[in-house]
């Protein structure tokens, strides 16, 4: 309790032309946690990720990462601080190869200059070797799915599940401390989904990442999350363990009430 939480968000507001995408959100993640953010569509979950990763500027509020403010930083600077994310609608560099995808995301961890590349210095060769090796290492995390001949295939030919895996690998390659996963198992079949859930657990237990994930699949949320935060209309309406949250009447209303409206 003495050290500050890894990620701390206080009084966060995001307003798009009158629409409150997020209002007065407080949020904290301790190191080594897996926190799930759930909520109906349009609740502001992805906006929340966009704000933390610097792609959307908050209207009001504070974001601290390891005790330092992230406000006003460009997304690449935030990635350099140690936060990496994936995207809900998979956004790979489709025309680059699988290996290049994970090599490019080590950009902020490498120091070579253009001159090194031009002169083909030993520093350049060493670093390229390292980048390549690290890329293969993170791809190897997913078994043989993204290795071997896949290294040189463009990302656009991958299957949907593999694209999701590559997105996670690409985020891992930035050597983050905090991983933001936006619906990591969306569109996967139950077997693939269960397998990935297990891998996400491994990401925390073996690789030491702290993880925040957005997920609609409640079985995944139940299986791996330490804590759950429920967003609705941009506000956090409940937080706690999965068991606590799933019994919360407000949460049930947010989901079921919406469903009743839909009929």
């Amino acid at each position: 309790m003495s050290s500050p939480p890894m990620l701390e968000i206080a009084g966060l507001h995001v307003v798009f032309g009158g629409l409150h995408a997020l209002s007065d959100l407080d949020f904290a993640v301790e190191e080594g946690e897996i926190v799930a953010v759930i909520g109906p569509n349009g609740a502001g979950k992805t906006t929340f990720f966009n704000v933390v990763s610097g792609m959307v500027k908050p209207t009001q509020g504070q974001i601290y990462f390891e005790g330092r403010s992230l406000l006003g930083l460009d997304p690449n600077k935030i990635t350099a601080r140690g936060i990496a994310r994936t995207f809900q609608n998979v956004r790979l560099f489709a025309n680059m190869t699988v290996l290049e995808n994970v090599m490019v995301s080590q950009h902020c961890r490498t120091r070579q200059r253009m001159l090194d590349a031009l002169l083909y210095t030993s520093r350049f060769r060493r670093e390229e070797e390292q980048v390549r090796a690290r890329g293969k290492e993170v791809l190897g995390f997913f078994g043989t799915r993204l290795t071997g001949y896949r290294f040189d295939q463009p990302a656009s030919v991958l299957s949907y599940a593999n694209r999701r895996r590559l997105e996670i690998a690409r985020a891992m390659a930035t050597s983050p401390k905090l991983l933001l996963l936006d619906e990591p198992v969306a569109g996967m079949n139950p077997v693939e989904s269960a397998e990935l859930t297990q891998l996400i657990g491994k990401l925390r237990d073996e690789m030491g990442y702290t993880i925040v994930l957005i997920e609609h699949d409640m079985s995944v949320v139940r299986d791996i999350s330490d804590r759950v935060v429920v967003l609705d209309h941009g506000e956090a309406i409940a937080r706690g363990t999965y068991a606590e949250v799933s019994a919360d009447p407000q949460v049930i209303e947010a989901y079921l009430g919406r469903a009743a409206d839909g009929n």
Binding site: M55, A80, F93, M96, R109, A117, Y120
Partner: peptide
Amino acid sequence: WRLENSRIGRAWMAIREDESVAEAMGVDTV
């Protein structure tokens, strides 16, 4: 040829593919 297969070349290609994602993956796009 040298630049295409280097850190900066990969960064350029990532920008060509999707600039905002490149930025989120730590590439200093500017």
